[in-house]
Design a protein around this nucleic acid. Structure first.
Lengths: 357, 357
DNA sequence: TTGAAAGCGCTAACAG
DNA sequence: CTGTTAGCGCTTTCAA
């Protein structure tokens, strides 16, 4: 409220009702006992005075703000917008409000937000953390006992907290399986992590600390192996993290003569870029190339033929995250867990049988 | 913070630094004077103890929470996701955090949120209000002096607050002008308000209280008149508020023989539905019908031919709203204003010259 | 420059 | 059942 007016408080209500402050407080809080008459008078006084309890004062004594903080890279991305919706919905039914913050991938913004949330005494935090080695702010918060749930990606700084994410590897498994069943053997992957394939394949990598893009790529590699298919390095296409980069990379690769018969894209942005490349090249799908996009975006249902995609359970990701956080806030500190939600394959018309070239 | 640990407070810091509570408070707040030596000791103590100021206590005495509340129908819609991004960005640079809430069109949820935000003592509220006659909660908040800014649509309950919205009428003007220049005369509109055209055309309607859908439709009607074109009632297509409704309505209308040569859609959802209808009907665009979508969505750039659209300045809508709110919070109560941001016409390839039939 | 003390609005004992 | 009394952690006079 603006600091203009003083606002009416319990004492004002008590006076108007002709009872003591504590009696008024008791009926207002609905706790403790009070005579029917007192209850009625206090209620009436509160109503006529337009009393609005001061949550700050309440929070100060109870130690609970009934607020959770949510930190994402960018709420305007379709993915996070949907996930946050899931979070806010369960937060509401569980009695929490949500404080939202975007980091845009800036460590500084993430740290600052963590600090502000701590000062605001949120009851818990959901964070889609930046991918970095050290995050003192995050580690400290966890050490202090702040309930935390990691969203979509892990963080070495919060290894004691639960991670809720998509089963990234399974997503790639679904795509590969589908293509293999259609008879494809020369399958290309478009991945942001494409350029780091060798590092990722090193024997000592700890997969639990890898970002989504890497996990999806490794999932692809594993799936190919499971199906007994050779990994053609020229079929793993590396691209930066945006639509234009995906477009350029695919255009370059698919313009060559030894073009693969199928393409699987490992992220939403890369999918649309790759699709544009197909258009640029005048390649027909599924005839010339079978195409699998990542994430069921609106455009996938509007282009013709419609696009086959690996869909993520956005909303569920959010609700599972929030449920987990609420449990952590209410109960004793839970053991860290890794909850990986299953992706779904939505078969439409951009994938078809492999044909002899 | 979890109510587990007591947390260190100013007093703890003061003791560790060997000064009084008020001296410590002064240096921590950076206000008032203190000897260099005291400053140093307090700072050191705070750092080593891991002191995190309690924002609740601070807010209680200052009366400012540095938090604003944002209430939208659905954060997972591309429109609001982008607008909220704009809001959070300026909120951050101005030193505010944002509390987010979805109403899903439920009055009950809106009222409840307003109440909770008031209890949490947010400094101001941005609300995309529900379209209803009375909203006691909103009216009361405004009367109490809560800084308020209406987003995208007006509310009779908050007539004293500023409204920041798209210039809905101008959006339709842009579309009509473009089509007229291409020689179209038989232009169809797809509108959620289509069924209420007569009411809207009544002489006594107060346009300032109309929802976006109605304003866009009236903007279309006015623009047609300005260009001296007759309003063909069979060319105003009414549809419910979702993609499927738009699809069905357009399919029905464009299957008839007297089909218009152009179609202008007045909302994002209706646009994709209408587009599907064109596909269903096997109509080619722009040859068979020129098509203008509302809101520059991703699919509009991925289908071929790409879609000409009336684009809304999502982000700017958000940032303008937030700036306005911050001004209202900081300064004296500003006069209510109506800020209508201009739409833009993005010409692509779904519109072409009208041809004789 | 520094300390003591009085609240901000509410909850939670603890006596009557 | 009801009133009195302490705080929660911080800012802010007001003296010293």
């Amino acid at each position: 409220m603006a600091k203009t007016e003083r606002g009416v408080n319990v004492f004002d209500v008590a006076r108007a009702a002709g009872v003591s402050k504590s009696t008024a407080a008791r009926v207002l809080a609905g706790a403790g006992s009070a005579s029917p008459r007192a209850v009625e008078r206090v209620r009436a006084a509160a109503a006529s005075l337009g009393y609005t309890p001061n949550g700050l004062a309440k929070a100060m004594v109870s130690g609970e703000t009934n607020t959770i903080g949510v930190i994402v890279p960018d709420i305007s991305s379709a993915f996070f917008a949907a996930v946050v919706r899931g979070i806010t919905d369960v937060a509401r039914t569980e009695g929490f409000e949500v404080l939202l913050s975007n980091t845009d991938g800036h460590a500084e913004a993430e740290d600052r937000t963590l600090e502000v949330f701590a000062q605001k005494r949120v009851d818990g935090i959901v964070i889609a953390p930046l991918n970095r080695e050290r995050s003192a702010a995050l580690a400290q918060l966890e050490a202090l006992g702040m309930p935390l749930v990691l969203l979509d990606r892990s963080s070495p700084a919060a290894s004691g907290s639960t991670l809720v994410s998509l089963d990234h590897a399974a997503a790639s498994g679904l795509a590969v399986e589908h293509l293999v069943k259609l008879g494809h053997e020369r399958i290309a992957v478009l991945s942001e992590a494409g350029g780091r394939l060798d590092e990722l394949l090193a024997p000592d990598v700890d997969r639990s600390q890898l970002p989504p893009s890497s996990l999806r790529l490794l999932g692809f590699v594993d799936a190919m192996a499971e199906h007994g298919l050779p990994l053609d390095r020229s079929a793993v296409i590396a691209a930066g993290y945006d639509r234009e980069a995906g477009r350029a990379a695919v255009r370059e690769r698919f313009a060559r003569d030894d073009r693969p018969t199928a393409l699987y894209c490992t992220s939403e942005l890369l999918s649309s870029g790759a699709y544009e490349a197909l258009l640029d090249l005048g390649l027909r799908y599924p005839e010339d190339v079978s195409f699998i996009g990542f994430d069921d975006q609106e455009w996938c249902t509007l282009v013709r033929p419609a696009i086959t995609v690996v869909a993520q359970p956005h909303y569920d990701l959010g609700s599972a995250t929030a449920h987990r956080l609420v449990a952590a806030i209410r109960g004793p500190r839970p053991d860290p867990a890794r909850i990986a939600l299953p992706p779904t394959l939505v078969v439409r018309h951009s994938t078809g049988p492999a044909r002899a070239r």
